[in-house]
């Protein structure tokens, strides 16, 4: 089934402009790998940048600038490529660039249990202010009902979930904000693995969530 829930246009523009944080950029780039439609839109957003660079007031370069560059043209200095995780099968579930921060495909994810039927892997090295984590919700299990102090983007990587109003499967992104209170429930038959980015801490109404929150920084 093709992707039903896409990135917002303003998020694609912010990614093109380069002014969203590292954590959110990971989610955007991972979605782009799975979504040709957003990829095409992201290329148009890059064209906006290209148009603006033609439009910008040129500022004279320092006298030595061209000479400096010219001197380095023939020196061999391999272009640094982004690190890519090796040893993946033919059909990895995690696309790049996510696979590289995990260090492999789904079997390389270091899960930590944070509640009944819910596991997470945090990526604390990825720059914020947003935070990024992988979540696994066991088939049929649910995350505690919660609200949001900021924005939460949740993208499905395998399985699927239902938030009561809509269902989400591989590649789909659920966008939740201050006005959203939800309790995602994983579909039966398969564990649901998601990539989630939050701009602020979640708001739990349940006592267990409130107790667990400081421990797991969710």
């Amino acid at each position: 089934m093709s992707i039903q829930h896409h990135l917002m246009d303003e998020t694609l523009m912010a990614y093109a402009a380069g002014d969203i944080d590292q954590a959110t950029s990971y989610l955007v780039a991972t979605h782009l790998a799975l979504c040709p439609k957003c990829r095409a839109a992201a290329e148009v957003a890059d064209d906006i940048g290209g148009g603006l660079i033609e439009d910008v007031e040129p500022v004279e370069m320092e006298n030595v600038a061209f000479g400096n560059v010219l001197e380095r043209l023939d020196t061999f200095d391999p272009v640094a490529e982004l690190p890519r995780a090796a040893n993946i099968g033919n059909n990895p579930i995690l696309p790049e660039p996510l696979r590289s921060i995990v260090g492999g495909d789904v079997d390389a994810i270091k899960w930590r249990r944070i509640g009944p039927g819910v596991h997470q892997m945090r990526f604390d090295d990825i720059g914020g202010p947003s935070s990024i984590r992988l979540l696994k919700i066991s088939a049929g299990a649910s995350v505690l009902e919660h609200g949001h102090n900021g924005e939460e983007l949740t993208m499905v990587l395998s399985g699927g979930f239902d938030d009561g109003a809509q269902s989400f499967s591989r590649g789909d992104i659920e966008t939740a904000n201050e006005d959203t209170v939800h309790q995602p429930v994983a579909m039966k038959g398969e564990d649901c693995i998601c990539l989630a980015v939050t701009t602020g801490p979640l708001k739990f109404f349940d006592i267990f969530g409130k107790i667990a929150q400081p421990f797991f920084r969710i």
Partner: peptide, 20 residues
Amino acid sequence: FRKLNRPELDPEDPALIPQA
């Protein structure tokens, strides 16, 4: 300005979904 490079998709990634 960041300690990690800007994340980008990998056009050669086998997990990349091509244009239908």
